[in-house]
Computed example of a mutant assay.
Amino acid sequence: MLRGATDDDVDTIRRLRNQQANRDVSITSHEIGAAEHAAWWAAASVDPRRRVLIYVRDGETAGVVNFSDLDGTTGSWGFFLDAEGLAERDETLPAWIEVMREATTYAFDELGLDLLTGEVLEHNTVVRQMNRRFRFVEGAASQRGAVSVIPISLRREDRRKK
């Protein structure tokens, strides 16, 4: 299940984002401090072109989904999971599939998008494979600092349906 993030979720969002597994596959991989995170939340929580959602699995916060650059027909997205908690419960793969299904459904059915975009690190072959499973199309890689980033996109008419 996805629900809107609130002020009560801010510390949990930061804790999950700072898990090493999530930092390893993020464009910005430094540990995010309290002041930096507070500034991000202050801006994100009032930005009409953004949605920050909490992914809940079996009653537990299991991840965060971010939508940005929403303009009515297009938007960008990304997510991260509670890598440590899901691994302990041996639920990483089912949660990953579920959050992608719920997030793409939200993008097209709730937000009414026609095109959903995002980015993935070129070396993150596991995520790239899952993106293809969900019918995301990759663009040409570009260098962003020390990492190579691949744009991805999914059109409403190309998405997987239940």
Results as ranks from 00 to 15, higher is better:
Asn18His: 10
Thr117Val: 15
Val147Gly: 11
Ile97Met: 04
Phe79Val: 02
Lys162Gly: 06
Glu60Thr: 10
Val52Arg: 01
Gly59Glu: 13
Arg101Lys: 02
Ser142Asp: 15
Phe134Glu: 08
Arg17Gly: 06
Thr74Pro: 01
Trp40Phe: 03
Arg50Gln: 05
Arg15Thr: 08
Arg51Ser: 07
Arg17His: 08
Val127Phe: 08
Ala141Gln: 00
Pro48Asn: 02
Ala146Asn: 15
Leu86Asn: 09
Arg128Cys: 11
Phe67Ile: 12
Arg156Thr: 05
Trp40Leu: 01
Tyr55Asp: 04
Val46Ser: 01
Glu157Gln: 09
Arg57Lys: 04
Asp69Gly: 07
Thr73Arg: 11
Ser153Ala: 07
Ala141Tyr: 01
Arg15Asn: 12
Ala43Gly: 00
Val10His: 11
Arg50Glu: 01
Ser45Leu: 01
Thr125Pro: 00
Ser29Lys: 00
Thr74Tyr: 04
Ala21Phe: 09
Leu70Val: 07
Phe134Lys: 10
Met130Asn: 05
Leu115Asp: 00
Pro94Asp: 06
Lys161Gly: 10
Val137Glu: 14
Gly33Thr: 06
Trp41Asp: 11
Gln143Glu: 03
Arg156Pro: 00
Gly85Asn: 12
Gly145Pro: 00
Gly75Ala: 04
Asp90Leu: 10
Asn66His: 02
Thr105Gln: 09
Ile152Phe: 12
Arg23Asp: 11
Pro48Tyr: 08
Met1Ser: 13
Leu16Trp: 04
Ala103Tyr: 10
Ala34Val: 08
Trp77Leu: 12
Asp69Thr: 05
Arg132Gly: 08
Gln20Lys: 01
Thr12Asn: 03
Gln143Ser: 03
Val65Ala: 13
Ala39Pro: 01
Gly118Glu: 09
Arg155Ala: 05
Val120Ile: 09
Ala62His: 06
Asn131Val: 01
Thr92Ala: 10
Asp11Ile: 06
Glu36Ser: 02
Trp77Cys: 09
Val25Glu: 03
Thr105Glu: 05
Trp77Ala: 12
Asp82Ser: 02
Gly78His: 05
Val10Asp: 08
Glu102Pro: 00
Glu102Ser: 02
Ser76Cys: 03
Asp90Gln: 14
Val127Asn: 04
Arg51Thr: 01
Gly112Thr: 11
Thr125Gln: 06
Thr125Phe: 10
Glu110Lys: 07
Thr117Trp: 06
Pro48His: 08
Asp90Lys: 11
Ala38Pro: 10
His37Asn: 04
Asn18Thr: 08
Glu157Val: 07
Phe79Arg: 00
Arg101Tyr: 13
Asp58Ala: 13
Ser45Cys: 01
Ser148Lys: 15
Thr6Trp: 09
Glu119Gln: 08
Ala146Arg: 13
Thr125Leu: 09
Thr92Val: 15
Trp96Met: 11
Arg15Gly: 03
Glu119Ala: 13
Gln129Pro: 09
Arg156Ser: 05
Ser153Ile: 00
Glu102Gly: 00
Val137Met: 08
Ala95Asn: 10
Ala95Cys: 06
Leu121Cys: 05
Phe79Asp: 04
Asn66Leu: 14
Ala35Trp: 03
